[in-house]
Amino acid sequence: MPRPFRQFIVKMHGRCNLACTYCYLYEGPDHTWRTRPATASARVLERTADRIARHARAHALTTVSLVLHGGEPLLAGADTLARFTDDVRARVPAGCAVQATVQTNATVLTRERAAVLARHDIRVGISLDGGTAAHNARRVDHAGRPSWPAAARGARMVAEYFPQSYAGVLTVVDPTTDPVGTYESLLALRPPALDLLLPHGNWSAPPPHCGGARHGAWLCRVFDRWWSAGRRETRVRLFEECLALLLGLPAATESLGLQPFDALVIETDGSIEQTDSLKSAYEGAAETGLDVFRHDFDQALRHPGVAARQAGLAALAGRCRACPLVTVCGGGHYAHRYRAGKGFENPSVYCADLQLFIQHVAGRLAADARGECPAAPASLERGTP
């Protein structure tokens, strides 16, 4: 049976006030965003809230995750985000908790807007490349001006005045940067949690600096810093989930493991889509042909693309199914498996990185259990960035 959707990513605004040079959404192969309205209308939001509530009721869900997304979602207005969240909460059945988060670049996040979000129990996730201006050199506005001053003000303001609303920071791994320096710069922003994501890319359009397991080596260095500090400084979701999977515990993540993926996107025009990461593969890769006006979310569960992402081991390439790390790796991020002409039934373009990282974490876990100090992997000893 398909697993019901539990995470609903709603595009509140389809444009962004930044023009990050590496953005896979606006600079990648998919241009469907150009044909959609900039802002989700009240009609789209009302219908979306109703569909979420119906899905929660049909599957007796006790919790759903509501991610207010974009573009830059705050361009739709904090009050709009608050009204929509309140509407979803009013419609879902009793006993179903709605955990709401806005994912923002923080440049337009004022104290007044943060107060609105806090009053309506909407947590704030912030996207940054690191905790300094130098780390964020590629995050510029449409006139080429740096975004860091405004983003830093927003992040520090949330940490100072609304810590209960601070969900954490999302950062894309850049193996050309100093891993420990980047991690420590982010700690200065006091995030309660940190998401480290590999840059989107695939076999036909490789991500920057791919090869030689450089991304994996970067993650290993940050893991060692985090592990040595006793994991007290902040939560790092990728690390925690890797450890859980190594210990045989369930973990839900798009990047690791074999758990069925349970997220869905609602675009500004009401289109129902798979997650944005697929747009890094080719034009229309995330499309389902469904929308909130004519279709319920159970119909999306039966879409072949969604079914493939819920098929677990059966959806993986033969090489992956035979790999001893498969229960932890899970084949890697679905979008990273794509190869033109062969679809998604391939190992991840980050296969070598994931092997290095998972084996390193397993080694640290085993060595600590024995009270030993493990040797660094060969690629780390060579000083790979």
Results as ranks from 00 to 15, higher is better:
223 F>Y: 15
238 L>F: 13
224 D>F: 14
220 C>R: 10
226 W>S: 01
209 H>S: 03
214 R>Q: 13
216 G>S: 12
211 G>P: 10
229 A>Q: 13
208 P>I: 00
229 A>V: 10
229 A>H: 12
209 H>F: 05
213 A>R: 11
238 L>A: 14
208 P>N: 11
214 R>F: 06
223 F>D: 02
225 R>M: 10
211 G>H: 06
227 W>P: 00
227 W>C: 13
223 F>P: 08
220 C>G: 14
232 R>V: 05
226 W>P: 03
222 V>Y: 04
213 A>W: 05
224 D>P: 08
214 R>S: 09
239 F>G: 09
223 F>R: 07
233 E>H: 05
213 A>C: 08
214 R>C: 12
224 D>T: 07
215 H>S: 12
229 A>Y: 07
215 H>P: 11
226 W>I: 02
227 W>S: 10
217 A>R: 04
229 A>W: 12
233 E>T: 03
225 R>V: 00
213 A>L: 15
210 C>M: 14
219 L>N: 03
234 T>Y: 09
237 R>F: 12
236 V>E: 06
231 R>N: 11
237 R>M: 12
237 R>L: 08
237 R>D: 07
233 E>I: 02
233 E>V: 08
212 G>S: 08
239 F>M: 09
222 V>Q: 03
212 G>Q: 04
230 G>T: 02
216 G>K: 02
221 R>W: 10
218 W>S: 04
239 F>A: 10
209 H>K: 07
224 D>M: 11
225 R>L: 09
219 L>F: 11
224 D>A: 15
208 P>Y: 05
214 R>A: 14
213 A>V: 07
221 R>V: 00
211 G>I: 01
239 F>L: 12
222 V>R: 02
208 P>L: 06
213 A>D: 07
229 A>C: 14
240 E>F: 15
213 A>N: 10
214 R>W: 00
219 L>C: 09
240 E>T: 11
236 V>G: 11
208 P>H: 02
211 G>A: 11
233 E>C: 11
236 V>A: 08
224 D>Y: 10
224 D>V: 13
234 T>G: 10
227 W>V: 09
230 G>V: 01
236 V>W: 05
228 S>N: 12
222 V>P: 09
226 W>L: 04
212 G>N: 08
